[in-house]
Design a protein around this nucleic acid. Structure first.
Lengths: 336, 336
DNA sequence: TTGAAAGCGTTACCAT
DNA sequence: ATGGTAACGCTTTCAA
């Protein structure tokens, strides 16, 4: 019930706490005999150092904070898991918070983590974040921050994938498969991630001299329903698309359903490529060809960047983890 | 950079820390004028109470621990999210740990959380946990524990769904759809959850006077691959099943793929019902009829049970959150 | 209304 | 080899 402390052990042996402290940490300056006794009592009493006392003493919490839009979404969950594992290895605890993809909550998460005295924060921004004052405040307070996936140009270190290039490659692939009217299903335009991917898509069209049709570009709030609505609209166009590049797993899955609901075949009538996790692609039907992101690597890199900052390095670094196209059954190509 | 403390404020105003403490907490015994000054300095300096000092003082951490087999799996992620939200409302931080569905790691997680001095732990056991000594130790240490989903008869409070009944209803549904050779795809038999569901399944068969065929019951380690292997084996039987009840999302999805790979139709050749989250069912193809579990409710109930214990109530309670069948496209029935 | 001091558990430093 | 003490930031109790 009540936890045993060094003082308790000291009292039982009629010795001083400082001796207990030394013994328990294996420092010398304690006779072998006494050390044995102390260790036995600690063992019996189930002694655990009180991490709060230690934190207080050293003025260091060995804790980091993580903010994601939705931990329950496969992509984020895997990255969080990876960050957590890497942090643990380095002796850091992780506090995971969820912004529900809303900027409002995101600010609360920052507040919470700052209050908890975390030593650093890793953030994937909400899709509606346009005001970065909370990030500015972190910077001013010299709290290490690393952004990943959804980043912003605010002078903070970041880990992203090669968004533009991967979108270009994906679009190339669709073109090679014979598609000429390729739609882009993305998120809000304030997201740099989205504009980068869109630019990659547009660049591929340009290189192949395919005219850009603005009605084929749908950039709204990312959600299953908006993906469904947008795709149905696309399919109702006088000249509907023969391929869709979806920049988020939710959008890709909703596109699949919309296409199927219209009785169209994938990939014959409409080909699809999406950004998603292996598991979501594996589960989809037909299995969606996807931009495979090394989620584990993203997590590892993000934590390492944070660690450097926490150790005093104040350089701003941008890491790009390259993603590659994985062909499954929603595209016509079979090469690679 | 350096954080401002009450002492800093006190020094600037040449007053005592205790006065600052009282002012900042809105206790009376501080003149309005002085209080104003203190609050202004606190505001300016971005003062935050040091949670470690507070924890040390009150001997209370306001922190709970959560252990799940895999946070990246939709079902668990949603429950964790719910627990976390409910805990936050009550002023508790959550430390989320992942056992990777291995008993070995699960013990490490318990160790970690105990070291962190969490006030209570909510656990979903690993599928291979057969030794409960770590739970026993928690009980002896009077650390509040609540099990959910995968529980054990070790005298600890728990939150589960109506496993047996839901499996019986699901099996009934398959029978009503015309199935006579129904397979059960489950997890290891040491899991009470699994045996309960299996019993529900068997009971339904018995009630309908359908002979029990042991070759149709596959209870192995839960994984995508084992689900695939088991289903392929089932389909290779001289008399293959005409329906499958899968007790886990991974197993259901792998069954779908196995069935499809054999060129069989769902639900006409083989009907399927699975235990899974809404999102996994929604994403599957055909959309799997599923036992819908109120994940949010499970999380809320689990935390509330824990909270009661943390407040001193030492009664062991077992809560059942009832799940219901949701029909989609992998079964022939259209009623309900 | 304000101050002084003790204490939470731990560690570092200095003394013995 | 061991003890004593101060300090981390905060709250509480008692005294002024």
């Amino acid at each position: 019930m009540k936890r045993i402390s060094q003082r308790d052990i000291a009292r039982k042996l009629s010795i001083n706490v400082s001796t207990v402290s030394r013994a328990l940490r294996g420092l010398d300056g304690v006779s072998a005999e006494l050390k044995r006794q102390i260790e036995r009592l600690a063992e019996e009493g189930g002694y655990r150092p009180n991490p709060f006392a230690v934190s207080l003493r050293y003025d260091t919490t060995h804790t980091i904070g993580i903010i994601v839009p939705d931990v329950a979404f496969s992509h984020n969950a895997h990255i969080v898991k990876s960050i957590e594992a890497e942090a643990r290895k380095a002796g850091y605890m992780s506090i995971i918070t969820d912004s529900n993809d809303q900027s409002e909550n995101e600010k609360d998460c920052v507040e919470l983590l700052v209050n908890m005295h975390v030593e650093g924060i890793i953030i994937c921004l909400s899709q509606d974040t346009i005001d970065f004052s909370h990030l500015e405040r972190l910077k001013q307070a010299h709290i290490p921050v690393v952004l990943f996936d959804r980043v912003a140009d605010v002078g903070l270190s970041s880990v992203i994938i090669n968004d533009a290039a991967s979108a270009r490659v994906a679009t190339d692939c669709l073109i090679e498969g014979g598609a000429r009217r390729i739609a882009f299903l993305g998120g809000p335009n304030q997201m740099k991630q989205n504009t980068d991917r869109k630019h990659g898509y547009l660049e591929a069209l340009r290189q192949h001299n395919i005219p850009i049709r603005t009605e084929l570009v749908k950039c709204h709030r990312i959600s299953f329903n908006s993906g469904l609505t947008d795709t149905l609209e696309l399919l109702s166009l006088p000249e509907p698309p023969d391929a869709i590049l979806a920049s988020h797993g939710l959008l890709a899955i909703s596109a699949l359903q919309a296409i199927e609901s219209r009785g169209l075949r994938i990939p014959d009538d409409v080909a699809v490529i999406g950004y998603m996790s292996d598991w979501v692609s594996e589960m989809s039907h037909p299995r969606v060809s996807f931009v495979k992101q090394n989620l584990k690597e993203i997590g590892i890199k993000a934590f390492r960047l944070l660690l450097e900052q926490m150790k005093g390095d104040d350089s701003v670094q941008h890491v790009v983890v390259s993603a590659r196209l994985e062909l499954r059954d929603s595209t016509k190509n079979t090469n690679q």
